[in-house]
Simulated assay, not measured.
Amino acid sequence: MTDEDLLALAATLAERAAHAINAIRAAGFAVERKSDASPVTEADRIAEALIVEGLRAATPDIPVVAEEEVEAGILTALAPRTWLVDPLDGTREFAAGHDSFAVNVGLVVEGRAHLGAVAIPATMEIFGGIAPRGLAWKRDAAGQRPIRARAIPAAGATILASRHYSDDPRLDRFLEGRRVAEVIKIGSAVKFCRLAEGAGDLYPRFGRTMEWDTAAPQALLEAAGGRVAGFDGAPLRYGKPRFENGAFLAQGAATA
C-alpha cells in the first residue's frame, strides 16, 4: 500500500470511530477509572476495537499499538513501521460534555511521525497528513481541501493551551516576553488540528502525554508546515520506553 492508501485507511477508520463515539454519546455512558486514575468509557473501547480490527485486517504486516490494549497489558512488539492509535483522545473532555476530543490514527516510520488521520467527532471534521510529502487536508460537510499552518500574525500569537493544565505556572513563564493575541484553552489533539489549518500558532505542552496522543497529530501538523519538538529543539521521536513523551512545543509555520 502507498502512503496515500495508508492515509485513506487511517482516515476511514478514524471517521467510522467518530460516528461510533457520537452514537454512544447520544445514548449515554458510564465513566470508569483506569489504573492511573484516568477515565475510560465504552466509547474508548468500541472505537479502539473498530480501528484496530480494521488496521490489522488491511495491513497485517504493520503492528498496531493502541492505548486500551496497552492498559490491558497487551504489548505489541514495535517494527520499523508501527501504527499508534488513541481511539478517544480527550476522554476527560468527552466525559465532561465538552466537544474537544478526537480520534488519532498515526503511522510511525523509523521513529518519526510519518502520516496520520485525526477525527473530531463533535464536528465531524477529518484531518489527514503525510509529513514527508508536505501534504495535509481537512474534510468536513463542505468537502475536502488542502490546509496549511500560518506564520504568527503581527498582532501576536494565538496560544492553544491544554484546558486541564491551563493553571500550570510553566505556561505563564512561557508566555512572558511574547506578543500574545489570545490564549484559547481546549483539550486533546484538536489543538494540533487548529495549528495545522492556520487557526492558532503555538501549543506548549508541559504535562505528560503518550506516543499515541501525538503520533497522528504530529504527522498532520508537520505535513501542514508546522513543527513539533522538545523545548531543547530536538524533534519529538517515537519508540521510547513506556511510550511516554517529554514536554514539547507544537507550532505553526513560524519560528517560536
Rank of each mutant, 00 (worst) to 15 (best):
M1C: 07
A8F: 06
L13F: 02
L13K: 00
E15P: 00
E15Q: 12
E15C: 02
R16V: 00
A17V: 04
A18Q: 04
A20K: 03
I21T: 01
N22Y: 00
A23F: 03
I24E: 08
A26K: 13
G28A: 07
G28L: 14
G28E: 12
F29K: 00
F29Q: 05
V31F: 04
E32M: 11
E32R: 15
R33L: 14
D36L: 15
A37P: 01
V40T: 15
T41V: 09
A43P: 03
R45E: 10
E48F: 04
E48K: 01
G54L: 03
R56P: 06
A58P: 03
A58E: 14
I62L: 09
E67R: 03
E68K: 09
E69C: 02
E69H: 03
G73H: 00
L75K: 09
L75E: 14
L78I: 11
A79Y: 13
A79L: 12
W83V: 07
D86S: 04
L88S: 00
L88F: 06
R92W: 03
E93N: 13
H98E: 08
L107M: 09
V109W: 10
R112D: 10
A113S: 12
L115H: 07
G116R: 07
A117M: 01
V118E: 02
A119H: 07
P121G: 04
P121F: 06
T123F: 15
M124C: 07
I126N: 04
G129C: 15
A131R: 05
R133C: 15
L135H: 15
A141H: 10
G143T: 04
G143P: 09
Q144C: 14
Q144S: 15
R145F: 13
P146K: 12
P146H: 08
G156I: 08
A157E: 14
A157N: 07
A157W: 13
I159P: 06
R163A: 10
R163H: 03
H164S: 15
Y165L: 13
L171G: 12
L171I: 03
R173V: 08
E176M: 13
R178N: 12
E182C: 11
A189W: 05
A189M: 14
A189Q: 08
K191F: 02
E197M: 11
Y203R: 00
P204I: 06
F206G: 09
R208Y: 12
M210E: 13
T214M: 01
A215Q: 11
P217W: 08
Q218A: 14
Q218W: 10
L220N: 09
E222P: 06
E222F: 01
A223Y: 04
A224Y: 12
A224G: 02
G225V: 07
V228N: 00
F231H: 05
F231E: 01
D232E: 09
P235Q: 08
P235E: 11
R237C: 04
R242A: 15
N245S: 06
N245M: 08
A247V: 04
F248W: 08
L249C: 02
A250V: 00
Q251R: 14
G252E: 04
G252C: 06
A253D: 07
